[in-house]
């Protein structure tokens, strides 16, 4: 059994870590490299960097950040936001990222997942899925939840895994920013649909929330503000989870 991973997420705008609820009211929090080092030292298993900058003529503003982070970071990290082509992804991996996450570009062109998997290997390809509850289940949405696609999340994750996505970054846009906990029914439904690892995202703020995500079948839990604002540390969260029997990676130094 692998460890249940704790993943701090860093939203990056023009090279700075920012905080805001779903792209609204962005507030600058600081330097991505400083955040990365701090979370590594606290016991983070992986980091996710999402570029939320408005794309300027297709230029990837995250590349310099990825290079700087790779200099200091000795744990895996994933980058996403604005990845549209195989070339975008290749550049991010060459700059030092371990995985790339694709979202709306894959929805628009599902074949992109197969191309990415063929060139980079499935282990480097993360399908980010933003899910919104509907009367019939969960709908795939894009652009921070503003655009509905009419697609069923469960059929989309099956297709995504089949085309070569090696992991799912599953965000509940209903829960994101609410602090009410992960949508564990969504996690459980996706767990039944596919066998690839699931990173639960959106709404997780307490150890209990992470425990429930684990119990529902998630392989990792992702959060941002609870770590950024010092509400808890990754180490403290892991200690609580370990006491409840969740297998977590543990080093004495985090005690």
């Amino acid at each position: 059994m692998g460890a249940f991973r704790i993943i701090p997420c860093l939203d990056v705008d023009q090279g700075n870590v920012v905080k805001g609820v779903r792209f609204q009211d962005l507030r600058t929090m600081g330097d991505p490299v400083a955040f990365a080092s701090r979370y590594r030292d606290e016991g983070a298993d992986e980091l996710v960097f999402l570029d939320i900058s408005a794309t300027v003529e297709g230029r990837n503003t995250l590349l310099p950040v990825v290079r700087q982070v790779a200099e200091v970071l000795d744990i895996p990290f994933c980058v996403g936001g604005g990845v549209r082509t195989v070339e975008d992804a290749r550049q991010l991996l060459a700059a030092g990222a371990d995985k790339v996450a694709v979202n709306s570009a894959a929805v628009a062109n599902p074949e992109l997942l197969a191309e990415l998997a063929a060139l980079l290997g499935s282990q480097s390809v993360v399908l980010a899925v933003d899910a919104r509850r509907t009367s019939w289940g969960w709908e795939v949405v894009t652009h921070g939840g503003r655009v509905g696609t009419g697609r069923d999340v469960l059929s989309w994750v099956r297709e995504g895994a089949k085309r070569g996505a090696g992991e799912l970054l599953l965000t509940s846009v209903d829960r994101d920013g609410t602090g009410q906990g992960f949508d564990v029914e969504l996690v459980a439904a996706v767990r039944h649909a596919v066998s690839v690892p699931i990173v639960a995202s959106g709404g997780g703020t307490s150890p209990e929330h992470f425990f429930l995500a684990y119990a529902a079948g998630a392989d990792a839990g992702l959060a941002a503000s609870i770590f950024h604002e010092g509400q808890t540390t990754v180490g403290a969260l892991k200690r609580t989870l370990a006491a409840r029997g969740v297998p977590v990676r543990w080093e004495e130094a985090w005690g």
């Binding site: 692998g2 460890a3 282990q123």
Partner: peptide
């Protein structure tokens, strides 16, 4: 065994 074996292991 699920492949690839990926992630942290003791």
């Amino acid at each position: 065994v699920r492949v690839p074996h990926m992630g942290w292991a003791k």
